[in-house]
Design a protein around this nucleic acid. Sequence first.
DNA 1: TTTATATTTCGATTATAGTTGAAGCATAGG
DNA 2: CCTATGCTTCAACTATAATCGAAATATAAA
Lengths: 228, 228
Amino acid sequence: MSINPNVAVVASLLGETSRATMLTSLMDGRFHTASELAFMSAITPQTASFHLSKLVEGNLINVEKHGRHRYYQLANKEVAHLIETFLAISPPPEVRSLKQSNQVKLLQEARTCYDHLAGKLGVALTDSMLNANYLKKEDREFIVTPKGEQFFTDFGIDLTELKRKRRSFSHSCLDWSERHYHLGGALGNGLLTHFFELNWIVHVPSIRAVKVTDRGREGFKQIFNINM
Amino acid sequence: MSINPNVAVVASLLGETSRATMLTSLMDGRFHTASELAFMSAITPQTASFHLSKLVEGNLINVEKHGRHRYYQLANKEVAHLIETFLAISPPPEVRSLKQSNQVKLLQEARTCYDHLAGKLGVALTDSMLNANYLKKEDREFIVTPKGEQFFTDFGIDLTELKRKRRSFSHSCLDWSERHYHLGGALGNGLLTHFFELNWIVHVPSIRAVKVTDRGREGFKQIFNINM
DNA sequence: TTTATATTTCGATTATAGTTGAAGCATAGG
DNA sequence: CCTATGCTTCAACTATAATCGAAATATAAA
């Protein structure tokens, strides 16, 4: 009887306020964690988890597991196009609160993520190394190019030593404040350790944040072309 | 909290199997009656009426009331585009039954609709008069052109007489088998009467169907360029 | 006028989906 | 090791929406 019940399957995923809010939140193309999406749609983490698994099952979003976080993003351009079409046909959206825009401005400058650099600095560093062709991104790993091997050796990092360790060598890690990949793993840890050795960065007491020293400011500028 | 609840409002209308089936059925761009749409989605007329009023309220479809029928169609191209986008992203449809395609073939050739011609003949006649510039469609009415006034007079129809009647002169009427407008009102009735007078058509006993005579076959060909 | 048909409205039932508290698992960080 | 956190699973509750029988309304046909 029913000619095309499949349309309803996909549409019903969008036809629920919490899920629709999650999906429109993901329209910025960036990654968001489960708890963030829960907060955005004003539901408990349990409910969010329930909805998110449905969206994943329906191939509308993807998950990436990084540590104890789950990062979600729209599955593909088709989904984004679908939501765009909806926004075009829907009544105009409500006015957003000023508080919300202020919250967005809360960004961490530089901090450690587990045992490597994160925040603006961590992402800028990774981007810099990608631009300079020291690294190449492949799936969820960063590959060290021949040019990169030369660079890291010159910079004072023993790659053969790092590769011998049992942990992952150079996996990509998602940054919760910047929403971009940055370098993790043994190589990321090697860099972080070396920055401390060079006194480019110092710990900020009691929290995970790090502070760039004057010497670091100069070094990041010269070696990595990063202006702090 | 909720950034765009409106998306969910529209999507939830599509996110129900019966409604989705109705909307995809309307994707042919033609008109369908409430009971047809009920049959297509395998629900009772009561339930269909419930869903259809929701779709109308949500501005996804339009209604036109003709007699005791309600004819529904998609509201605009945006809605059609939305459903198309859904079809593109949805899993492939199921295999359809042969019975269904046979049902589609049940079409009425010629019959009276109230007191004017309907069916394939009625629509062909109207199209012919539109092509010949005897009529011009405007909203839900047909306007008789100067060329048309001449034609009808020559054909033996007294327009001034018809215009004097209290009923609508030349409204458009939706054809349930052809799904196109055809000529109704006093003018449509005048033509029907004249066809009977000319012995172009005769009644088929007990049902509303009419039969085209040999003389009629010749007349429709010569005057209206219609091949039966 | 009466009968038949198309559609809607009302009322009640049923099914299902969203929701949350409680508990459990995995990981980070000390 | 322990504690905190992010997230999921389980179980139960609740609200809501789809459904249909019965009755009402409107129009066509006889």
